[in-house]
Amino acid sequence: MALFLQRLVDGLAEGSIYALLALGLVIIYRGTGHLNFAQGEMALFSTYTVYQFGEWGVPIGIAVLLGMCVGFVLGAATEVVLVRPISKKSPFAVFIVTIGMFQLLNWLDGAIWGGQQLPSTAMGSKQVKFPSLFPSNPDDYFTVFGAAITWRSFCILALVLVIGAVLYLLFNYTKLGLAMRAVASNSESAKLVGIRTSTVLMFSWGIAAAIGALGGVVFAGLTTNVNQSLMFQVFIYASAAATLGGFDSPGGAVVGGLSIGVIQNLAAGYADEWVGQEMKVGVAFLVILAVLLLRPSGLFGTSKVERV
C-alpha cells in the first residue's frame, strides 16, 4: 500500500509535467488545428535560458519567470512569422515548418550551450546542479501512511493544479479567454463579432510555449541528465496525454497527462522486468495507438479528429 501510494504520487508528479506540455499542445490545436511538433523543443530552449539566467546569478524564481517570457516570445513569434503566413498554403507546409523549428531549436541548443549535459564543468558552469524550483535533496520528504512522498513530487503536483486553475479562470472569466474559446469554436464568427483572431492566435501560441517552458524547467529539475534529447520522449508522452484526453480539451490534457504519468510509473514499478526505464515510451506508444483506434476524439474531446 505504501509503495503503491509512493508510485502513485511519483506518477502524478511526472504526469503533471506531461500535462503542462499537453496543455500547450491543446491550446494551439484548438486555435489553429495544428499539432506543434516543436512544442518540446521550444520548452527545452526556454529551459536552457533558465539555466543561463541561473549562470548570471538570477534567483531561480525570477529566472523561471524570465524563461517563461522567452518561451512566450518564441511561441508568439513562431506563430506570427512562420505559421500564419504558411498556413495559407497547406497543412503539410505547416507540419514541415514545425519540424524545421524542432530541428532548428535543437541545433541552437547545442550550438549555444554545447552538446554536453548541463550543467557541465567543461563548459565552465558555475551551478553544480540544474536549477530546481523545488527542494530536491534526498531527505526532503514527508511520510503519509508509511509512504515517503518527496516534497518535490508534492510541489510539482500542486503547481500543475495551480496552473490548471489559473488557465481555467483565464479561459472562463476573462475577455482574452472568451476570445480564445470563440476563435477555437468558430473562427469566422469570431471575426464577425470583432475579435482579432490573429492576435488571439499569437497569444495562444505564446501561452502554450510559456506553459511548456515551465514544464521543461520542472522536468529538468527532476532528472539528473539535462541534454539536447531531454524533450523527445516528454513530447511523445505529452502527445499521448493530449490524444488520451482529447486534442481540443484542456481539462482532458490535464487528466490525460496525469493518467499517462501514473500508468507509466505503475507499469514500470510493478512490471519492471517488462517495462523498465527503456520501454516506458512503449507504454505511451500503445496508449496513442489504442486511443486512436478505439476513440479517436479522446476521452473528453469532441469528435473533430479527421477520419478517413
Binding site: 475577455k175 472568451l178 468558430n186 469566422e188 464568427s189 463579432v193 475579435i195 469532441t302
Partner: peptide, 18 residues
Amino acid sequence: GTFPELSVADNMRAGAYV
C-alpha cells in the same frame, strides 16, 4: 454561425467583445 461549444450567455458576451 454561433459558437456551438460556448454557452448561450458566453455567445452573447462574445458579441460585446468590441
